[in-house]
Design a protein around this nucleic acid. Structure first.
Lengths: 216, 216, 216, 216
DNA sequence: GATGAATGAGCCTTCATTCAT
DNA sequence: AATGAATGAAGGCTCATTCAT
């Protein structure tokens, strides 16, 4: 008479947890940490609010989990690229492309990063696996650079971290500031032609910078 | 014990308003729009909280004012650079340097932009002077590009908006994500040598991209 | 000293809701909608203030619930009067008496009505059951009038709505304006003899108006 | 350079005061005491807010002035009716008509009374002239009743205060509760025909009640 | 007489979180 | 594992009122 029309009651913890994480990623990305609402996450995940606390203790911990998963995801996919059999300069451009498209298809990633940086990385500091998780980011680039420098297709003196940061920067800034830039430049920077143009510029920029002979 | 700290009651509206704006810029930059507290702004500005509403109606309007002033400031200083008597490529690098140092000395600017973009530029949309305020950003670059392309020091086919975005991106991304990047790369990206290195990379990147002869 | 008055945490939602509604009726009646304080309602109901929002969303919705319940109550009790077996004129006077005593015993009712009318019935407009709830008010009177007109004890041409309004008016005005009238007439209009006198006048007034033969 | 485009500066205290009082009457009537806003009154009166405090000290005092003026007005106009040369019963109906039309043309009056009664007449208690101001209300009716009872056109035993209250009640209730009644009875009680009908009912009711011979 | 600047108290509402089942 | 009920702290904003000129 009471426990009938009841249930949702999945009783599948792993599914429930992943529903919560997905909803949280969406909410945190969209509103930022402070703007995000636990209530909204519960509604989106279609679970009871208290369950979130049951599995993730509090808002900060939940955010930390989301963040860690986000890093995990991009690094895993990036590592799966198999760039070793490509000529070094093509490999770099492939990596550049991967980054750009990952940002385009996973806008939550760059939004989460922004939010976390606004909070001075207070959550990331707690994730002790964050360095290993991201170690491939550097090593992949390093391997390509070494190859290119040895076969003379990439000029020497390029630092892997700087290259990574530059490749990220070129797309990240464009996408994360798209709203204000679109107003200032009075055009929709998200339309396909605009995105194609930007991609071309980014590839050129990287290619020129790495090209041997130009700089001493 | 009572008539001491009394010294309020300034009755100087312009001063009061600018105190509020300064405090607001600080608070909004540091915490983002949602994280910012009106109480804190009042405390920092050393004014009664209600005065903020007296002069700026509400939190959103206050943020809008801060934002508009921020754009005004960078564009004004940028326009004062007097780049016309420099060789085109030097002028571009000078502009790049200005941008970088402005970001370094006014970290609130990039933080405010980030916050506003997270809110999908909902405040900026209300500022109908935002296009004229920023128009010099484009025209300055355009003028330099034209000069350089005419005297052959800059290759043709460079778009002014893309150049602006690229110059901003190279520094913006590095600084705004400094907290997470410093963790991942296990080094303090804000220390002087790191900043100098980054500046060198950025200048190189821009210089190579603009150099004639390299790309068809 | 601490674990004593703890006895909250009722976990009986129906009880809690009715405690809130009772407290709200009292507060709204006494102070009017604008003068009423959510804090006071929470204190009177002995519940956490936030619970009021948990169950009733906001002040307006809470008021709407109180109002609806108030109408429900008077109409339910009125409908339970069983006037059909009384001679028509006695039935009218009985109804008059019911109204008068209901007002006397439930002063909140007329106060709530006043407050709602000051707000131009903006809450009542949202209650889509308000017409059916009140439909008996009219039909009861109509049935009596028909009987009386058929057996000749009530003159023809009396409109049921006008009769209802008149019966209400005679007592409502006296009670709702009791404070100012008592000052102007320099006597306490709430003392038993005064109330008895007023009741007599009201019954006379209605009786005379309905009496056949007097008016053409 | 500063005191030029300045002025409104009427420098006519009496006019200013009456502008404030008019605006206050409107605001208090429309929103009630608690709902009324000093800012709104200042705006409507087109005066500086502080002027209101200069002339009327505070919100309560202002309301008191408005209230006193309201009573003054109705009593003055009522006293100017010159009913002495009319037959007694006609005089009563004339008074009834005056009351009804006064309410219709000065809706603020009944709204102010309602608001004041909600506050338990706390302002009226402070007006020591309120009894003399209203004394004519009673004496006018008394004189008519005496005449009517002497010439046999009005039955004995009618109390002047009860007659006054009844005459007021019949119209007051209808008008003050017009919003809720219109919803419940699904018709606009303010339309001309409805008003005419109500007036007819009220006149009948009074006439019947006063008619000799009907009651013992 | 008239005005703009400034204040303190308080109000409705939100939100992360915990209790109890 | 899952849920509804309950809470305390605070946040944005309003409002009558006073200060200073």
């Amino acid at each position: 008479m009471k426990g009938e029309a009841r249930t949702k009651r999945r009783h599948d913890p792993d599914l429930t947890k992943s529903l919560i994480l997905d909803a949280a990623k969406k909410e945190f990305a969209e509103k930022g940490f402070d703007g995000a609402r636990i209530d909204q996450i519960a509604a989106t995940a279609n679970v009871n609010k208290q369950l979130i606390y049951y599995y993730f203790d509090n808002k900060d911990t939940l955010f930390t989990h989301v963040l860690q998963a986000a890093y995990q995801d991009i690094r895993t996919k990036e590592a799966a690229l198999e760039l070793d059999h490509l000529p070094a300069r093509d490999a770099v451009l492939e990596l550049m492309d991967f980054t750009w498209h990952y940002y385009l298809e996973n806008p939550e990633f760059i939004q989460l990063l922004n939010s976390e940086n606004q909070l001075k990385a207070r959550h990331l500091k707690e994730v002790d696996t964050i360095v290993p998780i991201n170690s491939s980011w550097l090593s992949i680039t390093q391997r390509i650079l070494e190859r290119g420098q040895q076969d003379g297709t990439i000029r020497p003196g390029i630092d892997a971290m700087q290259l990574n940061i530059t490749m990220s920067a070129l797309g990240f800034f464009y996408l994360i500031n798209q709203s204000t830039l679109s107003i200032i430049y009075q055009q929709d920077l998200k339309r396909p032609e605009a995105l194609a143009t930007r991609r071309k510029v980014m590839r050129e920029t990287i290619a020129c910078w790495l090209a041997p002979g130009l700089l001493p």
